[in-house]
Design a protein around this nucleic acid. Structure first.
Lengths: 169, 169
DNA sequence: TGCAATATATGTACTATGACAAGTATGAAG
DNA sequence: CTTCATACTTGTCATAGTACATATATTGCA
């Protein structure tokens, strides 16, 4: 029997770690801060492109023109669905279909100038947002940020393209 | 005339900043790393809830039970649309409708245990992912990360709830 | 009581996404 | 040239999200 489950109290952060992992706490807080940055940078284009569509822009920006099927695979889409999905993006002026030089049955998808602009708008905004934060800092603080972030990024490694695509960023 | 715009070459990061802003570069790299973390933490639940639905879980986790209309406002949804949106989440066992003690026309939405579990799964995974990165580090490196992230988070400030909701995180 | 305001639910309609099957055009192998 | 595989397109259908207008229930106030 599936009775309506009872209400639960709010919980900002579930479970506080051991008292000595201040680095974990700091990392979580910083991750929220960076999320804010990312979200703000993405917001302005969200009425031009949907998140799944932005995924495509990311892939094409990083890999260059791709065959339709390969592109579908990269974003984890069904190939047959993807054709009409591409139609919408073509209609939106974000991508372009072109014939493959090698084979007439292949269709190459590439960014249009507009598609590239949308992508650049987001990454540019992200950069600007972060710069805005950093310019509040003293030289010593900047150095601390640089050192800490470098260490973390090195340890975390670059996320695979497919991983970040989950969010479409 | 809007002819099909030509293909553009790939561009990983558009525009490199001035040579001295290594902190900016580090921050951008770290932001990508954290994005990977966030994306990985979100991936497992993406077949249980959609991103808009996860937004609701986030809001309810942070604010506790809310009236339907207030909840709709928090996630930026049209009130009349939201009723059926809530239907789906109720059907999915993620939230529950209950009568307001004060007024019989008000409907209070609260997380079910399952809804709270899904939210906790994501935040828990995020925490675990970050811990996994940090445990590779030496004490000195941990200290650098803690210091750098603390400075950055303080300068960036907590993102507003509405801001992070853009991404549904 | 009666009326206006409030809170939610429903009718209707549209777009985006996405799955599956079937069709069409092209290329490659024999 | 026939046949099979490849690459994309199209038909069909189902679901999610969202909007606008309208209906229903409830409350508060005159």
């Amino acid at each position: 029997m599936k009775t309506t489950t009872a209400a639960l109290p709010p919980s900002g952060d579930p479970g506080s770690g051991s008292p000595d992992d201040t680095a974990l706490t700091s990392a979580l807080t910083a991750s929220r801060a960076l999320l804010g940055v990312i979200a703000r940078s993405l917001a302005p284009v969200m009425d031009t492109v949907t998140l799944p569509q932005f995924r495509v822009l990311v892939v094409l920006s990083n890999f260059g023109p791709l065959r339709m099927g390969d592109l579908a695979q990269h974003v984890g889409a069904n190939q047959s669905s993807f054709s009409r999905f591409a139609d919408r993006m073509v209609a939106g002026g974000l991508i372009a279909r072109s014939a493959s030089p090698g084979s007439r049955r292949e269709v190459i998808i590439s960014l249009t100038a507009e598609g590239a602009r949308v992508y650049a708008e987001v990454t540019g905004a992200r950069k600007k947002e972060i710069a805005l934060v950093l310019e509040k800092l003293s030289d010593a603080e900047l150095d601390a940020v640089r050192a800490g972030f470098e260490v973390f990024a090195r340890a975390a490694g670059e996320p695979s393209a497919d991983e970040t695509l989950i969010l479409g960023i």
